[in-house]
C-alpha cells in the first residue's frame, strides 16, 4: 500500500525543571536565560525537527540541541535511543510543558514519514511547514512565518525527487543535504509561496514513489 503514513514513535519524554548550569552550557543553552530543559527521543529524526520547530511557535522555548544518531533508529544504542535527541530550553518548567505538548501534538498528528512502496521499506518525508517557527527559520536563514517544504528520502530517491520538486513549482532551494547524512538519508529545504511549496512536496513524493517502483529505469 503506497503512501501509507508511518507514524513516529515517541520513545521517551522527560523534563528537567532546574538543570545544572554545566549541563545547560554543554547542550547549548544559556544559563542566564534558560533554567528548564525538555528532552525527547523519537524513532524518526526529521518529523522531530519539524515538531521541535512547532514547539517554538506555541511557547517561549528555544531549541538548543537536536542531533540525529548515526545510521538511524535501527542501530540505536538502547531501546529508547531512537534516531534523535531533541532538547527544548526555557526559563520556566511550565513553558517546557507547553512546548512539549505542542511537540507531541505535531508528532502524533502532522509530521511523519510515508511509505513509498508496498512493502514499507522505502520511506519518504514530503512535509510542508505552512509557517516556520524560530528554530528552523534560523537554521534555514528564512524569516519566522515563511512556508518551507522539508523533503527527505533515501539517496537515489531524494536526488531524483529534488530535481522534480524544483521543476514542479516556483520554489528555490534554501539548503540541500546530500548523502550521507547521519541517518544516511538525503534531504532538502525549499521555499517559495505556500502553494509552490505544496506543489513541490507532492512532486517530490510522486517522483520518490516512481523511483522506488522502478529503481533501474530502462537500463537493466
Amino acid at each position: 500500500m503506497i503512501l501509507e503514513p508511518l507514524p513516529p514513535k515517541i520513545l521517551s519524554v522527560r523534563r528537567i525543571p532546574n538543570a545544572d548550569p554545566a549541563l545547560l552550557r554543554a547542550y547549548g543553552a544559556d544559563p542566564a536565560r534558560h533554567r528548564s530543559l525538555g528532552l525527547v527521543t523519537v524513532d524518526q529524526d526529521d518529523p522531530t525537527y519539524v515538531a521541535l520547530d512547532e514547539a517554538t511557535k506555541h511557547a517561549p522555548v528555544d531549541v538548543v540541541f537536536a542531533r540525529s544518531f548515526y545510521a538511524g533508529s535501527a542501530h540505536g544504542s538502547g531501546p529508547i535511543s531512537g534516531e534523535i535527541l531533541g532538547v527544548l530550553a526555557a526559563t520556566d518548567p511550565d513553558e517546557i510543558d507547553e512546548g512539549l505538548a505542542a511537540l507531541i501534538r505535531c508528532l502524533e498528528h502532522d509530521a511523519r514519514f510515508y511509505a513509498a512502496d508496498a512493502t514499507r521499506t522505502t520511506a519518504v518525508f514530503p512535509h510542508v511547514i505552512t509557517a516556520l517557527g524560530h528554530y528552523l527559520s534560523a537554521q534555514a536563514g528564512l524569516a519566522p512565518g515563511e512556508p518551507m517544504a522539508y523533503l527527505v528520502a533515501p539517496p537515489m530517491e531524494a536526488t531524483i525527487g529534488l530535481d522534480a520538486a524544483l521543476k514542479a513549482a516556483d520554489v528555490r532551494a534554501v539548503k540541500i543535504f546530500p548523502p550521507p547524512t547521519e541517518t544516511n538519508f538525503a534531504a532538502s529545504w525549499l521555499t517559495g509561496s505556500l502553494e509552490a511549496c505544496e506543489a513541490a512536496a507532492v512532486a517530490f513524493a510522486e517522483a520518490v514513489v516512481k523511483v522506488a517502483a522502478e529503481p533501474k529505469g530502462r537500463y537493466l
Binding site: 503512501l3 502532522d110 509530521a111 511523519r112 514530503p126 510542508v128 505552512t130 512536496a201 513524493a205
Partner: peptide
C-alpha cells in the same frame, strides 16, 4: 488535520 497528509 495535517496539511501534508491531505496532499499525500
Amino acid at each position: 488535520m495535517s496539511r501534508t497528509r491531505q496532499l499525500i
